[in-house]
């Protein structure tokens, strides 16, 4: 029998922590967008991104969408702990949301590179976080009993 590198419980815990990390990042960046305050950043890309109209979809800051997605993922990973049935049924939802998230961050990373011309450190971290979560959810899905 194939040995699992991570068991289901541990994978869900990691997904949960990464979702909370995503919420924290998205919340911080969203409030900076809304309050028009400078974002603490490793480079000057965050301000370039914040001040560019391409970082808003129909007037809504891009990180707000991340906040919604990560909050949903916190709820789903939490609900998975409440029953065995939900533990199984919610995994495809998590894979679906993180898959959508990967498409979203890919689009935004492309926008940062070719439209805005600068990268926001937090967006890059969040993109990496989303890709990790998607990979973990796929891993968990492919190893489920």
């Amino acid at each position: 029998m194939k040995e699992k590198f991570l068991n289901d419980q541990m994978t869900n815990r990691i997904l949960f922590i990464l979702s909370l990390l995503g919420v924290a990042i998205a919340l911080y960046v969203t409030q900076s967008f809304l309050r028009k305050t400078p974002i603490v950043c490793l480079n000057s890309g965050c301000e370039l991104v914040r001040k560019n109209p391409a970082s808003y979809i129909a007037g809504i800051p891009v990180p707000a969408f991340g906040l919604i997605g990560y909050t949903l993922l916190v709820l789903l990973t939490f609900l998975r702990t409440t029953s065995t049935k939900l533990h199984k049924t919610l995994l495809p939802w998590i894979a679906g949301i993180t898959g959508g998230g990967v498409l979203f961050v890919s689009w935004f990373t492309y926008t940062e590179a070719f439209v805005i011309g600068g990268f926001c450190t937090w967006c890059v971290i969040s993109a990496g976080n989303m890709i990790t979560m998607f990979s973990l959810s796929l891993y968990s899905h492919s190893h489920k009993k």
Partner: peptide, 20 residues
């Protein structure tokens, strides 16, 4: 009746909300 895992997650969520 909440499982230990659910309680752990709830605790982390409450802690995070408190920090926020």
């Amino acid at each position: 009746n909440l499982s230990g895992e659910t309680k752990l997650f709830l605790g982390v969520i409450i802690g995070t909300i408190a920090i926020i």
